[in-house]
Computed example of a mutant assay.
Amino acid sequence: MAFFWGDEVEVCSKLDGFVGSHYAGTVVAEYRHKTYAVRYKTLVTEDDECRPLVEVVGEDEMRPEPPKVLASGFALFEEVDAFDNDGWWVGKITGRKGSNYYVLFDKYGEEIAYPFSQLRAHLEWVGGKWVSPKKRVVF
């Protein structure tokens, strides 16, 4: 899929400890060989925390920003994206206490509680389309 200047995207990290996380950004330049400069919305440069990080990434590391999906709650074992450490991480709902949902990140063996506002319905970018996992009964 080709991207263009101004497109809102997410970039998948390949760094150890961050594999599978996605970071929101905007395409600010297009280069040859399906590479793009992306200005991140939440990541900043090491030397100036007021300046957004701009990075050149390959098309295979990018996807369009997912559409907003209205959700009133999440089901047990439903896949969700949790916003943490400036990016979106895929996990599964393991419980709920009050307004917090507990999310298990299988890859890292960690379970963390998040308020509803830091969660979104998980969607997969497959074959150029957003695909939603099967919905379960919300608790």
Results as ranks from 00 to 15, higher is better:
53 L>V: 00
69 V>F: 01
44 V>M: 14
85 N>M: 14
82 A>Q: 00
110 E>N: 05
123 L>V: 08
77 F>I: 09
73 G>M: 08
34 K>W: 02
35 T>I: 09
121 A>L: 09
124 E>W: 14
24 A>V: 09
94 T>F: 02
113 A>Y: 01
102 Y>W: 13
3 F>D: 06
75 A>C: 11
116 F>R: 01
92 K>N: 09
95 G>P: 00
3 F>V: 06
99 S>P: 04
58 G>K: 01
16 D>S: 14
106 D>Q: 11
127 G>Q: 10
84 D>K: 05
68 K>T: 14
107 K>C: 09
124 E>T: 14
103 V>A: 02
51 R>I: 12
134 K>I: 09
121 A>D: 03
128 G>I: 10
70 L>T: 08
4 F>N: 10
1 M>N: 08
67 P>S: 13
38 V>S: 04
1 M>F: 07
100 N>E: 13
56 V>I: 15
122 H>Q: 03
15 L>C: 01
126 V>C: 11
37 A>Y: 01
106 D>N: 08
56 V>A: 04
29 A>F: 03
24 A>T: 07
122 H>N: 05
21 S>C: 07
111 E>Q: 11
47 D>E: 10
72 S>F: 10
121 A>T: 13
27 V>R: 02
27 V>C: 04
100 N>C: 11
45 T>Q: 03
64 P>G: 00
82 A>P: 03
121 A>P: 06
68 K>I: 14
39 R>K: 14
108 Y>A: 13
114 Y>R: 07
37 A>W: 02
118 Q>N: 14
66 P>W: 06
105 F>L: 14
85 N>R: 07
123 L>N: 03
50 C>N: 10
94 T>N: 02
138 V>N: 06
27 V>Y: 04
118 Q>H: 09
117 S>E: 15
38 V>H: 03
67 P>D: 12
88 W>F: 07
28 V>A: 00
18 F>R: 15
122 H>L: 01
95 G>D: 08
74 F>I: 07
122 H>M: 00
106 D>T: 12
58 G>C: 06
79 E>T: 13
123 L>K: 00
91 G>D: 07
95 G>M: 08
126 V>L: 13
133 P>G: 13
45 T>H: 04
85 N>L: 11
119 L>A: 05
93 I>S: 03
27 V>L: 06
4 F>G: 11
6 G>E: 10
